[in-house]
Design a binder for these strands. Structure first.
Length: 369
DNA sequence: TAAACGTGGAG
DNA sequence: TCTCCAAGTTT
């Protein structure tokens, strides 16, 4: 099948590339932040940092990274741990599929690579949770491969430096950015260079109010030259969050409450919760009773509304309604959940649980006290 | 391919 | 309070 040659949007000269690479690397050596994962050469620890940093801010990640590494110090330790423990270690970080993929990848690393991470981007790409970015990051930073990477920072920096047009997600734009990143990474210290690009984007070439006066590569920046820094790259269009209302069953027995583990896929996949059923925003008590009865597989009676928790997720406008419920027969399993368990709030605190659910739990436990 | 997937920090 | 978003991947 013939493929038409793609016309490059930009064709930077060797001089232009050189005017960026060396100054940026030198700037990085002088200005890089002292981050804990920059003090290690352990590929596993570096991989962990890259996964945690996906869509997550540095300051949030630091304590998680240190705690997780103590609990699961090697790929082998992680592979051997129960998924439940891994999710508990990820508790509160969000995007929980990352934790499940991390766990699966560790098991692949043990079974396919003898417990040691493979060293090339191409091999890493075959592991769960490794996309193009993470493969390039681990290959270059941990193993010194001249593998490019493009994250949000790099996309912004390169868009400005080379005046790359197009909206985030545009195919041709993405191809151009990866091509530029691939040209720039060739040379000494590819891992440090990749990090310099990201560090520059995070601290200087920021989305809003970039510090162009402090920029080490201002001379080579087409957007700066043309006064287009503020308009490149264009902001991404974001879909309005959809409403999701969940009725939560607060079923008390002795000093325990009923908890359920969600299905592995979808929102809060694999996490524990007060048993939840989706309801209409304006659902009646009868409708809510039916939904919770169906979810638990046994008849329940709604005693009272104990409270409501609202959370804003990126794509969801989440409302949690906590209902005290009772019933003639206490369930121990249900088709709607992977597992049911009666445990005390203290025991529940050690389970993998979303922050949203933790808030709901704190609310009802406070209500009962 | 567009949509789904969490959270807390910053302005 | 509210909007935007931060070192992306998966389906």
């Amino acid at each position: 099948m013939a493929t038409s040659p793609r016309v490059p949007t930009v064709t930077p000269s060797a001089a232009h590339l050189a005017s960026i690479r060396a100054p940026l690397l030198a700037w990085y050596d002088r200005n890089k932040r002292d981050l804990p994962w920059r003090r290690t050469k352990d590929p596993y620890a570096i991989w962990l940092s890259e996964v945690m940093l996906q869509q997550t801010q540095v300051s949030t990640v630091i304590p998680y990274w240190e705690r997780f590494l103590k609990r699961f110090p090697t790929a082998l330790a992680l592979a051997s741990a129960p998924l439940d423990d891994v999710l508990a270690g990820w508790k509160g970080l969000g995007y929980y599929t990352r934790a499940r993929n991390l766990h699966r990848a560790a098991q692949d690393i043990v079974s396919r690579f003898g417990g040691t991470l493979p060293s090339t981007a191409e091999q890493l790409l075959s592991l769960p949770g490794f996309g193009r970015y993470t493969a390039g990051a681990v290959a270059s930073i941990a193993f010194g491969e001249e593998a490019p990477l493009v994250d949000g920072n790099v996309a912004r920096v390169l868009s400005r430096l080379f005046e790359v047009e197009g909206l985030p997600g545009d195919r041709e734009r993405e191809a151009t950015l990866w091509e530029l990143a691939g040209l720039l990474v060739k040379g000494e210290r590819p891992g440090d260079f990749n990090q310099s690009l990201m560090e520059h984007g995070a601290t200087t070439c920021r989305p809003e109010n970039p510090l162009c006066l402090l920029c080490p590569v201002r001379e080579g920046c087409v957007a700066f030259k043309k006064g287009r820094v503020a308009e490149l790259p264009p902001a991404k269009v974001r879909a309005a969050p959809k409403k999701l209302t969940l009725a939560l069953a607060v079923w008390a027995h002795a000093d325990t409450l009923l908890f359920a583990r969600r299905a592995d896929s979808g929102l809060f996949g694999g996490l524990w919760e007060l048993p939840a059923a989706e309801v209409d925003e304006d659902a009646t008590v009868e409708e809510t009773t039916l939904r919770l009865t169906a979810a638990l597989g046994t008849g329940v009676k709604l005693e009272s509304l104990l409270g409501t928790v609202k959370r804003q997720l990126t794509h969801r406008d989440l409302t949690l309604r906590m209902y005290r419920v009772s019933g003639p027969k206490r369930p121990t399993h249900s088709a709607a959940f992977q597992e049911l368990r009666w445990c005390t709030p203290a025991e529940a605190a050690t389970l993998g649980m979303s922050t949203a659910m933790q808030r709901a739990l704190d609310t009802v436990v406070g209500t009962q006290a």
